Amino acid sequence: METIHLTYPETPDVVPSVMVLGFFDGVHTGHQAVIRHAQEQAERLNVPVTVVTFDPHPKQVLSNKPDAVRYITPLSRKLKRIESLGVERCLVLTFTKELAGLSPQQFVDDYLIGAGAVHVTAGFDYSYGKFGEGTMETMPFHARGRFTTSVVNEQTEGGEKVSSTRIRKLLGAGEVDAAATLLGSPYVICGEVIHGDARGRTIGYPTANVVMDASYVMPRLGVYATRVRLRDGRTFHAMTNVGRRPTFYDTGDVSIESHLFDFSEDLYGQLIEIEWVRFIRNERAFDGLDSLIAQLKQDETTARSILS
């Protein structure tokens, strides 16, 4: 997939295409429906598809709490997921206050008409231009007769709208399996393995301590059945703890530690991916190592059963 990064006032080259608009955090099943619709239009018109998205999240630029923004799919992962859907081209517009200040007409002129759009599509709730004043209802007016438009209706699962907000809430509640249904695949985070206190190794449960490589949505604190994918492509069943390790610390930062089953290699410095399969239990403090080890053995049995 050709990926073009632009910062206003930079504008794209003219490439006739069907343009599909959205932030696409998660690239969930609702987003996938929009992209599939664009691909159908592109096949009809015999042109490629261009996804138009933004980075960073608008809230990071426009809100008073930019550090509070967490992503289901940070940009690198979002682009991988978009490419996996067969999209040929992606414009990534750096979201700045200057870009946010464009009128709806100027946004369309510069980034849709100016980029060669022959057809533009988006979800029913997409908005553009200053204060989000442009909507898919106004898009035909702003098109100036240069391109046609279509709108993809709300996508639902279980009678409720599929949305990034809903997925974030599910992850925050530990319902990673329900989130996977909406995403169309398990939730994944990526991070580097760093040195920890090596306590897990002394009790027979060595862990890969992972520092996330971006601002991912953090699943609820607790123990999960997971799969860990290494940089060489191998995947191992695992159990992963998200928490503050209350057995050993009164307070502390939240950490992510994965114990890979049937694995004994050195992972320090590697970027790994953790695929979240199912929540097992809440994190809790234990009254000693014996009770902790007994619980870890039970967690392993549960995780192996889930993953088998």
Rank of each mutant, 00 (worst) to 15 (best):
I272N: 07
D25N: 02
G116P: 12
E175V: 00
V47G: 09
M136A: 09
A238E: 04
G269A: 02
D250S: 05
P9D: 01
D55C: 09
G184Y: 07
S150V: 03
D55E: 15
F124P: 12
V277T: 10
M218Q: 13
Y71Q: 04
Y187I: 14
R144H: 14
E265P: 00
V211F: 05
E88W: 08
H142M: 10
I256Y: 11
M136W: 09
L230H: 00
T94F: 02
I256W: 10
D67A: 05
Y8S: 03
R227A: 05
T181M: 14
I274W: 10
Q60E: 15
F236C: 11
V69I: 15
D287R: 06
I72D: 11
T29C: 01
A238S: 12
E157A: 08
D266G: 06
R229M: 13
V223K: 06
E2H: 12
V223D: 09
Q298L: 10
D262T: 02
T301K: 12
H28N: 04
L102V: 08
K161S: 08
G116S: 06
I293T: 15
R146K: 12
V176L: 03
K59E: 15
G174L: 06
P186R: 11
L112A: 02
V242L: 13
R278C: 06
A214F: 05
K59S: 14
R245Y: 07
Q106F: 01
M19D: 03
S163H: 03
I35N: 11
L230W: 00
L79N: 07
L307M: 10
P56N: 07
P12V: 00
S291H: 12
I167V: 13
H119A: 04
A179D: 10
D299S: 08
G86K: 03
R201V: 01
L182D: 00
Q295Y: 09
E175P: 00
D290A: 09
A122P: 03
P66H: 10
G243P: 08
L230Y: 00
E160A: 15
P66E: 12
N241V: 08
V228M: 05
E192Q: 08
P74S: 05
E133P: 00
Q270P: 01
S291V: 13
S63T: 01
D250N: 07
G132R: 09
G129M: 03
T94Q: 14
D110G: 00
R234F: 11
A303T: 00
E2K: 13
L112I: 03
R36C: 04
I35H: 15
S84R: 12
P16E: 05
A38S: 07
M136G: 11
P48T: 02
A117H: 03
S63R: 08
F107K: 01
R278F: 03
Y216Q: 11
G184S: 10
E160T: 10
E2G: 12
